[in-house]
Design a binder for these strands. Structure first.
Length: 272
DNA sequence: ATTCTCACCTGTTAGC
DNA sequence: TGCTAACAGGTGAGAA
């Protein structure tokens, strides 16, 4: 579910609502989270100093010196509110803080989300992540793209190439730069690479400014929904008309992911 | 070595 | 209307 702009919105919300709070108790921790992180209950008594984002990861810095790493995957959400709401069947972690009876809930319908302390293995994963999508430059992208024959869509989804892009923003970036999703990465011209890098930066900036994209379930920590859906040109727009050429937006599968594009604006005639 | 496919889990929706 | 299959914002293990 959440891509970089959504995670960025959540991290900002955590820094405004949870920073400085001390964990009083954990009224609820699901077994599947404890299986991944048996020491999760050690959060009790610790204090959240600050939150940062790296790619789609949330990193919480704790007073004890440890760091907690959260990945929301497809359906994970973090909600912060008063400590008296009813527990949802998909709530897997509840944190009650000492001050102001504030409560944090980790909710995740599909249970793909991961919460664990940062150890060597997790640090290695963070180290290997690619450049941050909102800051990607044409020369960085050039170096990444030229070595691979993979479909450009699949390459852009690879977090170890560029960190933060997901299915929505890859489709939107390719549309904005007139590139067909099935193009071989190494076939992109210098001009196309410049356009793509610029599109990625612009779309990330606009999406962050609009608090991300909400279709149904995503929201920030206070429940506020993202407004970027109104700017979508191709994602989920199959069947409607392209805003540039009036052709019909189509949907295909690339690397197992639904992929939306304009067959006229994003020509596939030079795939290799 | 790089790249592709599938499983992970639950809910919703499209199609018969 | 009801059943079933396919699909969903992501990623990693194992196969090719």
């Amino acid at each position: 579910m959440p891509e970089l702009p959504e995670v960025e919105t959540i991290v900002r919300g955590l820094n405004s609502m949870v920073k400085g709070l001390t964990v009083q108790r954990l009224p609820h921790v699901s077994p599947h989270l404890l299986k991944r992180e048996p020491q999760l209950r050690q959060l009790t008594g610790d204090t959240f100093k600050s939150f940062e984002r790296r790619g789609k990861y949330i990193i919480a810095f704790l007073k004890s010196g440890r760091r907690l790493m959260i990945h929301l995957r497809m359906s994970g959400r973090i909600l912060v509110g008063e400590d008296q709401r009813r527990r949802d069947k998909h709530d897997h972690l509840e944190i009650v803080f000492r001050a102001r009876s504030r409560r944090l809930v980790f909710r995740d319908v599909r249970k793909f989300g991961v919460i664990q302390f940062v150890r060597d293995g997790q640090q290695e994963t963070l180290n290997r992540l690619g450049a941050e999508a909102p800051a990607i430059t044409a020369s960085q992208l050039q170096a990444l793209v030229c070595k691979s024959k993979r479909h450009v869509k699949s390459l852009l989804l690879d977090q170890y190439v560029i960190a933060g892009l997901g299915n929505i923003y890859v489709d939107e970036s390719l549309y904005r730069s007139y590139i067909h999703p099935l193009r071989a990465s190494s076939s992109l011209s210098a001009k196309e690479i410049r356009a793509l890098a610029r599109a990625i930066r612009q779309i990330m900036a606009l999406a962050i400014k609009n608090l991300g994209t909400t279709f149904d379930s995503y929201s920030g920590v206070n429940g506020e929904t993202g407004r970027f859906a109104r700017y979508l040109k191709v994602y989920n727009q199959n069947g409607s008309r392209c805003g540039k050429c009036s052709d019909i937006i189509v949907k295909i599968k690339v690397g197992g992911r639904g992929t939306h594009f304009c067959p006229t604006c994003q020509k596939d005639d030079c795939r290799s």
